[in-house]
Design a binder for these strands. Sequence first.
DNA 1: CCGCGGGCCTGAGAGC
DNA 2: TGCTCTCAGGCCCGCG
Length: 292
Amino acid sequence: MNSRAEELPELPEVEAVRLALQPVMERARFEQVLVRRPDLRVRLPGTFAARLKGQTVRTLGRRGKYLLAELTSGDVLVMHLGMSGSFRVEIDADGTTPERFDDERSPGAAHDHVVFRMSAGATITFNDPRRFGSIALVSRKDLQRHRALGALGPEPLGPEFDAAVLARACRGKKTPLKAALSDQRVLAGLGNIYVCEALHRARLSPRRRAGSIATSTGAPRASACRLVTAIKKVMNDAIRRATAAQEDGSDADRFRVYDREGRRCLTPGCRGTVRRIVQAGRSTFFCPVCQK
DNA sequence: CCGCGGGCCTGAGAGC
DNA sequence: TGCTCTCAGGCCCGCG
């Protein structure tokens, strides 16, 4: 099925990328900015490189699946990895500028769309074969008006995210729980894989009505409490794994249900078999025996 | 107004 | 072996 599943960038993978980029971006200046292909999912304006050049990064943060480089000018560089985006970091010891900056039309590696040359001596390359990713420069005061960012739900690992918050967000929703958890306005950062994983850990069916985790007044039921605990556990474990995986690579069998159709359910004591169904055009993996 | 389905995009893998 | 077809999913948009 998807042999690259472990690389799909959801919150944990984006957090690992943030940790890797932090030391070469924070307090560094954009000395050169090269745009090879402006036609990412959102087209980069012709003014992008000139506007970014010379700016200094104050902090590199994250919100859901978005990386946010806060610049000292008040601008924010908003980056999204989409499906297949990645950043490559190269440090040159002698401080010479790589020759690819000499000519914007030089070939470069396939799918290297945007290249940042930082003052700290690092070259950061955004590579994205499918171009579902996006990069944008937004002024800080316009961040909340950013279509997706402004509507983003709570951070799953934030202290403000609890069963009451999730129950309220799901209250009255007739959509399946799978769809609600995939909705970035309900909760920021989960994608197809970790939604499956969290539902499995919470022993909740992806087909259940989202509203069913709340009472009619919006109070959390036991299922909402289980689900929040499961989401936090799955996110924390995945961040640890994603961070470690960047260094030593191999990281097999990290999913309990995702991409395990036909195999034995791994819930302790459960003898069910993982099934695959399609919801809203996307694969859902779950155990019909223990997930109710 | 909410929910669903289609489209974008490319590479991997299946099948003929 | 080499071609063609399908499928993967984050996000957006249009339709009912």
